[in-house]
Simulated scan of single mutants.
Amino acid sequence: MIATPHTAHVVTLTQTMPVARFVVLDLETGDAPEDAIQAAIRQWKAPSNWKPETVEKNRAEQAEKIREKAALLDASPILCAGLRSDREAVMFNGMGDTGPLDLPGWTIESHPDECAMLAALGQWLNAHTDDVTALVGHNVRGFDLPKLRGGFVRHRLPLPACLKPRDGQGQPVTDTMSLFKSFSMEHRDDFAVSLDVVATAFGIPRPKQYVSGADVPRLHREGQIAAILTYNAIDIDATAEIYRRMMA
């Protein structure tokens, strides 16, 4: 008697790992390389009607401002990317060994450099999101999403599906900074609103922090990786709670 062939049941990734309804994300960046800073300084142009002495004075001031905000240049490295979904929280660290670090509720993936970190991040996003997963963040439209896309392109890595520009409606995105203006008369006309301001307005307690985003490049130079990851996780947890309250 010949046995009837049996086809094994194939379990797909989406069957075993349902996609997230939302993903709150936040990045921390380090200083751009010196050549990129110099290029940005050279690109500054003074109005043609300025006097030479005015041009030189302002050139020096602009150069100082560019150096102070070198972490915002396109060439600046992404040091870490924290993601909190409705299912889990994962911190992608591209700075190597963290040293002693306790982040309750977080899984930490450490990688030797930015490229390896982004490759792992891309795999996570492809596995945990689909075209209706909401991408959430504070100023996520103005900073985090374009910065992420630029990082993948710089390293010639394929963009995760949720980050690809699409015709039509595109990936759902909720920017808590701009959305907050719909909840506030006081700040509705502000160009930018800090995460601390929004958390305070919603009565969300924040741990005392002795650093801000502007301190991250210095902390990176000093090798304080754990401090950077902790700061990132605190901001993401606050943003996630703000999002839940806004969408409740």
Rank of each mutant, 00 (worst) to 15 (best):
M95Q: 13
G142T: 11
N139P: 10
C162T: 14
I37F: 00
R21L: 03
E222I: 01
E88R: 06
A199E: 03
G96V: 04
T14I: 09
D31G: 05
K181E: 07
L121E: 06
P112D: 11
A40Y: 02
R166S: 07
T200P: 06
K181C: 06
A3F: 13
A116D: 13
E114H: 06
G105Y: 06
Y210I: 08
H6A: 06
S48R: 12
P217I: 08
H111F: 14
Q169K: 14
L195Q: 15
L159F: 10
T174C: 08
L219V: 06
A39W: 01
K57A: 13
S194D: 03
G94C: 01
I236K: 00
V140D: 05
R206T: 11
M177N: 05
I236F: 06
F92M: 04
D237A: 12
H138T: 00
T16W: 11
F143E: 08
A227P: 00
V140R: 08
A32L: 06
R149G: 06
A240W: 02
P104M: 04
T133P: 10
E53V: 09
L195S: 13
T7D: 12
R87F: 12
D131G: 02
G137T: 03
V90A: 00
D131N: 14
Q171W: 04
S85V: 02
D196P: 01
E61T: 07
I66L: 14
T16V: 12
E64D: 13
G99F: 05
Q62N: 15
A81Q: 07
A214D: 14
Q209M: 15
L27I: 02
L125M: 15
Y210V: 09
M17D: 12
I228G: 04
L125S: 13
R166V: 02
S76K: 05
R166L: 02
D35E: 15
T54W: 12
G30L: 08
W124V: 01
A233G: 08
F202T: 03
I78W: 03
M17E: 10
V216L: 01
Q169A: 14
D102L: 03
P207N: 02
L83F: 14
E64M: 06
E222Y: 00
T129R: 01
G122C: 04
